[in-house]
Structure formats: C-alpha cells, structure tokens
Amino acid sequence: MSPAVEATALSKSHGSVRVLDSLDLRVAEGTVFALLGPNGAGKTTTVRILATLTRPGSGHARVAGHDIVTERSRVRRAISLTGQYAAVDETQTGAENLRTAARLSGLPRRAAARRAAELLERFRLAEAGDRLVRTYSGGMRRRLDLAAGLVRDPGTTRVMFLDEPTTGLDPRSRQELWDAVRELSAAGTTVFLTTQYLEEADRLADDITVLGAGRTLATGTPAALKSRYAEHRLDLVARDREAHLRLTSAASAVTTGSVTATPDALSLGVPTDGSAAHVRALLDVLDPERRDVDRFTLHTATLDDVFLALTDTTALPVNDKEPSRV
C-alpha cells in the first residue's frame, strides 16, 4: 500500500531563515505518527505544507497518494487539519460551527445538519451543541475543532493532521483528546500529530520523528528511540563522602558506559539494562559490604532523555547528562 504521507527533501525558508532543511518523512497508512520537536523546530511549517496551506520552497510530498502542489484539491478532500489554535467561531454554537464546515465541504443543508449531529454525538458534545462556543472549555473547543475537521463523509478523511492538539489543555481534556485520537486511528484514519510533549508521542505514536532546527534528528518507534538514544540507569545515593568516592571508583571500574557523579548530592548514576539480575549484581559489586549505598532508584529510559539528548545544542554525548531526578 502506498504510504499515507511521503515527503522527499522538503525545504522552506522564511526570508533568510531556513525553517525546514531537506526533510524526508514516510508515514504508513493507518498508523499514528508523531513529529516531535522543541518550539521553532519546524513542526507547524511541516504540517502546513503537507496540509496544502503553505507551499514548500523545494522538495516534493504526496499525501493520501496526491501531490500537495499539483493536486491540492484532491489532497484537501482526503485530509483534515486541527491547528494549534481552535479554528472555531466563538459566537456560533457548536452545531452551527459544524454545519457551516459541513456545508462548505459540499454537503447540502439537511445532510450537513445530520452530519453535525452525528459528530456532536461522537465527540460527546451533543448536550453542548446548542450553546455558543464562547462558553466551552478548552477541551470541548479542541474536540469541536477535531469534529469540524471530520465533516466530510465518514471514511473520506484518510489523513488527519493535528498540530499540537493538547497544548494548553488540562490533564482530563488531554486524556479525552487522546481517546478521540485512538478511536480515529482504530477506525483506520492515519493520524499525523506534532507535539512537544514526549509522553503524548510515547502513548499515541507508532512512529516518531524527532525534528530539530528543520532537520530530522532521529526516527523510529518509541521503543527503538529509547534504546538507541537513552538508557536505563541505576541512581545511587551514598551514605557519606568517602562512600561516594569508593562507589565512584568501583563503578568506573565495572562499567563500559560513563558514570555520572554529583559529589555534592552524594549521588551517582550507573548504566544498567534494567533487569533485576543486573541491578542486584551491580549493587553487590559496587558495595560488597553493604555499607556505602544509602538509597537507590532505577531510572527507566524515557523519551525525555531521547529528546534532551537529541535536541541539546551543546551536543553532549548521550551518557554525560545530569542524572534525572525521578
């Protein structure tokens, strides 16, 4: 099957600033893809180009099988976009917003009203449907915005673009939005989302591309990225300064990875594979007499580590990070 999104060497400059620099992307049909990156990495520009709102400076892309420049109308009929700010009218009701969008998508009046009602139901807005959007919570607005992107006949939206869909939402609204995204994905829609929240990408995405300054920094499944760019770590707190010294030298002797030591906090991080056997063995080797280690925690690799490792502009080697305070 042809990929839902395929981009080759996309570039875009605003004046002399290079926003995207030869970006390649490939998103398989029916998957959830996350474009992860700090502010200014080029996420929104990428989405706007793929959703035909902005023209690429150079490069090519096909979305749902259609070229984003030469077949713009076809692409538009196969996608939906939910932008960073809910693009709904505050002084229309939820139902009116959806009916407007449905009519603009080409549905006649009655079909548009039916579609609006279905969508309100599906996004749990049926009760609020006749209230002005001005009275909605942030989460309700986002859900309405999602719904407005789906006014075309069910099934015709093949790729759904979500640009930072949960920025500024409270935890409950975020959870609700995640549920909505999972439902869409389960129904077969390809979801292309951007986020700066690693947890979001970790929970939702099948594949992730980490973007920094308009370039791809890494790409892979969440698990693959974690194992490649971050590692599990045993964080120890020594009983006193001498114990800390002894532990540090013992750790340097047994491990091939690098050890992070923070003498002032009496703490120390040692790489491990995270298994019980390895952790137990490591503790025995480092502290055979069981007097130097006061406490320990196991730090599991997270996408945060991947993200920090990849987007750190000072480009420290992966293992030289501060031990994270879990």
Partner: peptide, 13 residues
Amino acid sequence: RLGVVDRFRTLDV
C-alpha cells in the same frame, strides 16, 4: 489572525 481561514482553506474554499 485566528486561523479560521485555514479551516476554510482545508475545506477547499
């Protein structure tokens, strides 16, 4: 400014 126009444009208006 509010991006409402983007919604219309993705609906091919």
